[in-house]
Write a protein that binds this DNA or RNA. Structure first.
Length: 557
RNA sequence: GCGCCUGUAGCUCAGUCGGAUAGAGCAACCGCCUUCUAAGCGGUAGGCCGCAGGUUCGAUUCCUGCCAGGCGCACCA
């Protein structure tokens, strides 16, 4: 093995290719890209890694793709870690690694342990990740649940890429909704009809009882005073319930940010001054507006209404300023599809504040989630009255299956969760497929220890791992850091899930074709150790991947 | 009317800067456990990548138009 290096083999080779191209710059007579990624070809005949860079440079350089490919081939031929460099088709360069040269991946994984896959793409970047942000007036429902899973996973992924992540839950605890909530609780407690535009779920009755139990004196007061008392205590209890449900779901927040608090200590006044000083605030018809149309929004937005009360956007703007003043570089908003209209105004708000809306604000829109059971869409929730709750979903399928399934799809596609599949224990249910792979590796390692097979950093023997399945497995393991970096950059945690499924599949195939432990009275050899070590590296990567999703990696199933 | 998202195998869906024969699981059919977890593995079959143009050596991917579905367009929150 060559000296330990943090660069993976593909990073080294792509850097080498760039060097070769740069050296030939006079001949190419065009801009040389600053980075290039080697693909893992689907077809094994195309080698371990491939690049189409020669095709891409053909036009700017005015040279035939094959001529450029020849330059790359000539430049790479001398490397000891490459067995062959071939030109195929119109000008693809296919690289086949020398036997054993993939072994660095294994020692890397063993040395890095839980940190394997972590990178530094976002080092030094302070990210504010806001998700869920529900009203504290009822249970969290299915829409919130998607974000509870995806937001949490994204937080883990961004942190793995080096970012300093603060997860924030914005509590919409201000405004007429809260008063309607209080009035609904009050009516429920007194056995009166609830306001038409109030809250009607069955949970209101339970919550009203809880409020009375917590403060029996509340029945002694009346009128508005009583409404507010119900509102404030109900809020507290409901928020606690949301927090407890999220806690059980494995989603934790660093900051629970109260919308109301934006108006404490003249903070809002300060925010208005800030925005005014940037020159996009104006008065019209007695109201105070922000001229978001200066930056592409459809219409200007009211902050302070003509009657002096605050529009919702007042809070939005103050909240954004708060985030920026607290030092966050990137503010990520995860919103439901019914709020997609917010993107334009949030970006414009940032621009009005003199920020770069493309960098400082990142709005992710999550499409709807449907849930199917017994072939039919489940619509009714016994608690919420209309929509199924997070708690009910977890009761049905468990935390791991719920989280995994919600994260598995890109958020911009509407998704359907089939409860029957999530309860099944087959290939059909990807979370079990992946967890089973992990449990299987662990079983092999337990057996290896029992019969005294040595494995670990001293027992890698990369030159022995030449079976096709072994090469596939090592190659797949080496992809993990790049997958994590991509998921962070694109804000797409589902890539981790897809990768881990792929890795589990590769492992299962390896397991089927490559016997790890000695058979019968066979004498333990270095190959057994090498394979056991490979298993141990695989277990680490699967566990790391599942960790990023907040899904458990069981050692036994 | 304007805007955002979606349209890929019978079903549920992957497919980041355009790349080689478009993938996975399920469902269908055929195989594999007297030794490491069969919650597994192998094989067969299954496609106008919504439609029509355009850019390109090359388009599921980028651009334009159209069709279909979902969701929005308040001095509501």
């Amino acid at each position: 093995m060559s000296a330990q290096s943090n660069l993976s083999i593909q990073d080294e080779i792509s850097a080498a290719i760039l060097e070769v191209l740069t050296a030939a710059k006079s001949k190419l007579n065009c801009e040389i890209p600053t980075s290039l990624t080697l693909d893992r070809p689907k077809n094994r005949d195309h080698g371990d890694y491939a690049t189409s860079i020669a095709l891409a440079l053909a036009k700017p350089s005015g040279l035939a793709p094959r001529v450029i490919a020849e330059i790359i081939v000539a430049g790479l031929k001398a490397r000891a870690d490459i067995a062959a460099v071939d030109i195929a088709g119109a000008g693809f360069v296919n690289i086949t690694l020398a036997k054993g040269s993939q072994g660095g991946v294994i020692s890397n994984i063993l040395a890095s342990g839980k940190k394997f896959g972590h990178g530094n793409k976002l080092t030094g970047v302070a990210v504010n990740l806001e998700f869920i942000s529900a009203n504290p007036t009822g249970p969290l429902h299915l829409g919130h649940t998607r974000w509870a899973a995806v937001g949490d996973a994204l937080g883990r992924v961004l942190a793995a890429a080096g970012a300093k992540v603060t997860r924030e839950f914005y509590i919409n605890d201000r405004g007429v909704q809260m008063d309607k909530f209080g009035a609904s609780l009050q009516a429920a407690a007194l056995g009166e009809a609830r306001p038409e535009d109030g809250y009607h779920g069955a949970y209101i009755d339970d919550l009203a009882k809880e409020v009375v139990a917590a403060n029996p004196q509340i029945l002694k007061v009346s009128g508005e005073e009583q409404t507010f008392a119900f509102r404030d205590l109900g809020y507290k209890l409901q928020l606690t319930q949301q927090q407890s449900v999220l806690d059980k779901f494995g989603t934790h927040f660093d900051v629970w940010f109260s919308e109301k608090s934006l108006y404490d200590n003249d903070f809002f006044v300060h925010c208005q001054e800030v925005l005014k000083s940037k020159g996009h605030v104006f008065q019209l018809d007695g109201a105070t507006w922000l001229r978001t149309t200066d930056f592409g929004d459809d219409k200007d937005r009211v902050m302070v209404k003509s009657d002096g009360s605050m529009a919702y956007f007042a809070s939005d703007s103050a909240y954004y300023i708060s985030k920026r003043e607290r030092g966050f570089d990137i503010c990520i908003y995860m919103l439901g599809a019914d709020h997609h209209g917010y993107t334009g105004r949030l970006k414009a708000l940032a621009a009005c504040n003199g920020d770069d809306p493309e960098y400082n604000v990142d709005v992710l829109i999550g499409q709807m989630v449907k849930i199917m059971e017994g072939g039919e869409e489940v619509k009714l929730s016994k608690r919420a009255g209309t929509i199924i709750t997070l708690e009910e979903l977890v009761e049905k399928v468990g935390v791991d299956a719920a989280r995994y399934t919600l994260i598995r799809y890109p958020v911009d596609t509407p998704m359907v969760m089939d409860v029957d599949i999530l309860r099944s224990r087959t290939n059909e249910n990807p979370v079990y497929y992946v967890q089973y792979a992990h449990a299987r590796v662990c079983a092999v390692l337990r057996n290896a220890s029992d019969i005294g097979i040595k494995y670990g950093a001293d027992s890698i023997y990369p030159e022995l791992l030449v079976h096709e399945r072994e090469r596939e497995l090592i190659g797949a393991l080496g992809e993990f850091p790049r997958v994590v970096a991509g998921a962070a950059e694109l804000r797409e945690p589902h890539r981790i899930a897809r990768y881990v499924e792929e890795l589990a599949g590769v492992y299962h195939r390896f397991y089927a074709d490559c016997r790890v432990l000695p058979l019968g009275d066979e004498t333990p050899s270095e190959l057994h150790s090498a394979r056991a070590t490979l298993c141990s590296a695989t277990a680490q990567v699967i566990a790391n991947g599942l960790e990023l999703l907040g899904v458990s990696a069981p050692e036994k199933m």
